[in-house]
Amino acid sequence: MIGPVMIGPSSSHTAGACRLGLVAHHLLGEAPRTARIGLHASFAKTGRGHGTHLALVAGLLGFLPDDPRLPGAFAEAEKAGLKVEFHDVDLGDVHPNTAQIDLKGDTQSVMVIGSSTGGGIIRVGSVQGFKVDFDASQPTLLLRYVDTIGVIARVATTLAADGANIAALTCAREKRGGDALLAIELDQPLSEPALNFVRAWAGMAWTRMLPKLMDG
C-alpha cells in the first residue's frame, strides 16, 4: 500500500504497463529487435500521455518501473536497435488495460497478452498463444513441450528435488499429443542446474524462468 516506487503518472497505465513489457523481455531471453504492440480499450484510448507506450517499451528493454530512463524509452530503444510499432487491437472480453506484445530477437520470438489491473499489479493471460494466468508476483517457470503422459509428474519431482515449492500451476495444450504450455508459480526460483536438466528432456521445446517482478 506504500509503493511501488515508480515513474509517474499512473500505477495502472505506467508501472503496470512497464511490468507487462518486462514479462516479454524476460521471456524472449535475448536482445529484442522488433516489437509489435497491440493496445486494447483503455490502453489504446487513454494510454497516450499516461506514458503507457513509453512504459511498455521501457519494460521491453528490461527497465524497472522506477527506472529514470523510462520517459526516454523511445530514444533508448533506438540506441539499443529495437524497432517498435503500435496498433489498436480488440482482444474481446478482457480487462480494459490490456496489451498484446509480439517481440522478436535475432533467434527467438515471444507473444504475450497481459493486463494491468490497478496499483501496478498485472495478470498475464496468454504466452505463445497458450492460455495462462499468473501475476509475476512469484518466480514463474514456463515450459513448452510435446504433450505426453507424465511430463507434469516429472517436472513436479524435479522441482521437489530442487527445493522449489509450487504455489500455482496452469497447463494448456493445442490438442492431444500437440504442443502444451505449463506455467508454474514457485515460492523459490528453480536453480540453473535443475533448469538445464529439464531443458535437455526430449520433447521440451522452450523453457523460461521468469523472475519475480513485483515488490509490493
Partner: peptide, 21 residues
Amino acid sequence: EENARMGRIVAAPTAGSAGTI
C-alpha cells in the same frame, strides 16, 4: 507534480493520490 511530469514517486496507495501521505 513530479508524478505528472513522469518523475519518480512512491504510489501511496496509487500514483494519483501519492502526495497525500
